[in-house]
Amino acid sequence: MSDTPFTQETHPGRPVVDRRLSQEAFRKLTSGQVINQTQYVNGQLAPNPLFNELYKERDRYYVEAYSNMGMELVQRRGFFYVRSLIESQGDDDSRDQESSVSIRQIQGVLLVLGRGVLEKGFMFEAMTLPEAGISRETLESIGSDPTMVLILKACKMDQSLPDAAKVALVDRDIAFFNDKGNLVLTDAGKTFFEDLFSQRSSEN
């Protein structure tokens, strides 16, 4: 997964930080979640106030604040996440990771989803539209394929695909279940998915 930050214009002046939003963003980021530009609320996508808080004061406050705590606040198009400064200064294999296990789980589930959805005849957009998504029945069907089971087991995931998707993606805000119970990728999920499959295409 690429970690090239999405740059924004620096806004001079004194930062104006919302303490409540700042604390909530910190809690989410340090628990391994991403913060997306949009969030699923009442059946539709809406602006995420946590993203807006980080965005407006990123350069004036948050980058330095997280750095002082040993973390790098990384912004990519549509979402924020944090990583350890020790990781970000290491080699390429350690970047963009909470741990090698968690990154393998994310990539493994996305790989299974990508292959399975295409084999079922769905378009990629089905995984990204909040009113669409992939049903639990379809996820279970994809996850029952022996090849997909092996991929998940290699990522240390013995759950069914719907449960694996919850652990690897939904709990990290990389995906969500919509009102129909269908799985939909968030802003971060779409980017990670594109990273994974563009990387695999370049390797072939």
Rank of each mutant, 00 (worst) to 15 (best):
I35C: 10
N48A: 07
K153D: 07
R27W: 01
Q39M: 14
G32P: 03
V82F: 00
G70Q: 03
T4L: 08
E24K: 12
R20V: 10
G108R: 07
I151G: 11
T38V: 10
S88K: 09
R83W: 00
S102V: 10
P146I: 06
F122T: 01
I35G: 09
N178D: 12
E24Q: 15
Q89C: 09
F197I: 15
I134F: 07
N42Q: 14
Y55W: 03
D93Y: 09
S135K: 14
Q105G: 11
V82N: 03
N42T: 06
S94A: 13
L161W: 05
P5K: 02
V34F: 04
Q75W: 01
E72N: 10
Q33D: 06
Q159I: 04
L152E: 04
A25E: 00
D187C: 14
V109Y: 06
P130H: 13
A165D: 05
K28G: 13
A188V: 15
F197D: 10
M69K: 05
T128Q: 14
F177K: 15
Q23N: 12
E24A: 14
R27M: 08
A164D: 09
P49S: 05
E203A: 12
F26A: 13
G189T: 14
E194D: 15
F192T: 15
A165R: 14
V167W: 10
L169I: 09
